[in-house]
């Protein structure tokens, strides 16, 4: 295998994070998978060329996970960048993004590198160990081992002490869970909620102050102000080649909701009765960018992903406007 596959060192690019990774395909794991949407990027082709691996478009023909040597993604820091590090598959992100998104804790320097350009890839000189992912599914045994059976040592201490210790143990466990929940929620707010607020409020500030907002509201009014317009909006958002582009991070849906439709409802430009159908209309594309990854998370076979991607996109084109109609009908019950 040494004659066929070569180890390649991948470094972080400008503004990037993590790495360097040393990618060495093996006969079992010989696929570089590009999960970028819109074809295979030049960087993925270059990596495949250098290593001697096969490059594959993860949207079209996703291989089974055990054959993947590395994945190339272009995630801006929402969901996708953490999915593969979590599975301990070496991940090369073309976008310079560090530990972010809901799976940030799995993004570590030994499995993830970002901001990568073609010139950041070089043949390795063998001085560094090859990056190896391992199956994280093996349940850590430490948990069981660390908890020895409560030995019946307190034979003379009586039942009362036993009760007190077990209450203490339960209390400790509950407090631990609560504290961890607090940490998780503060973490989420700082990592994901506040950055988005900063971005949205900057846009809202500019849009409102300059008066662009009124213009946009008037522009959106024929689309968002009546049910026919909303159906058209939904049908556009659901076009199968458009929906995967509109999807990532729900950024477009959030901006339309927070910077245009929301304020327009607040000022009365759009009737409040349109709120419920609008919520479905401008979010028709939800998750269309994420189909292969989402299916892979459910451990779907490659054939399933190959058929599942078009199935979801086609279904969305039909069901987007249908859900707007359902929401419109339901808004009469409000």
């Amino acid at each position: 295998m040494a004659k066929k596959y070569k180890a390649v060192r991948v470094e972080q690019g400008r503004g990037g994070w993590g790495g360097p990774l040393v990618i060495l395909p093996t006969p079992e794991r010989d696929k570089i998978v590009a999960i970028t949407g819109g074809g295979i990027p030049a960087e993925a082709k270059r990596l495949a060329e250098l290593t001697g691996a096969t490059v594959i478009d993860g949207f079209k023909a996703p291989p089974v996970e055990s054959e993947i040597c590395a994945v190339v993604i272009d995630c801006g820091g929402t969901a996708r960048c953490g999915v593969y590090p979590r599975k301990r598959i070496p991940t090369i992100n073309l976008t310079p993004v560090g530990q972010s998104g809901p799976l940030a804790q799995f993004i570590t320097e030994d499995i993830y590198v970002s901001g990568v350009k073609a010139q950041n890839m070089k043949l390795a000189d063998g001085s560094e160990p090859v990056t190896v992912g391992f199956d994280s599914k093996e349940k850590p045994m430490a948990k069981q081992a660390a908890r020895p059976a409560p030995a019946a040592d307190g034979s003379g201490s009586g039942a009362l002490v036993d009760i007190i210790t077990s209450i203490g143990r339960v209390m400790g466990k509950v407090v631990n869970i609560l504290f961890n929940s607090g940490r998780r929620s503060v973490d989420q707010v700082i990592r994901n909620v506040i950055p988005f607020m900063a971005f949205v409020t900057m846009m809202i500030g500019i849009i409102n102050y300059t008066g662009i907002g009124n213009g946009l509201a008037h522009l959106m009014e024929p689309l968002a102000g009546n049910i026919v317009g909303l159906l058209i909006l939904s049908a556009i958002c659901g076009i199968p080649f458009l929906s995967p582009i509109l999807g990532p991070g729900a950024v477009i849906a959030q901006v339309i909701g927070a910077a245009i439709i929301g304020p327009a409802i607040g000022t009365g430009a759009i009737a409040p009765a349109m709120a419920l159908p609008a919520l479905f209309a401008y979010n028709t594309q939800v998750g269309c960018d994420f189909v292969p990854v989402g299916l892979a998370l459910g451990e779907a076979k490659p054939e399933t992903i190959q058929i599942g991607v078009p199935a979801v996109l086609i279904s969305r084109q039909i069901m987007g406007p249908v859900s707007v109609l359902i929401a419109y009908a339901a808004s009469y019950l409000l």
Partner: peptide
């Protein structure tokens, strides 16, 4: 929590 504004934007208007 990362994508709250899909809902919050319209909610703020109401």
């Amino acid at each position: 929590p990362g994508e709250l504004f899909v809902w919050l934007g319209v909610a703020a208007g109401i």
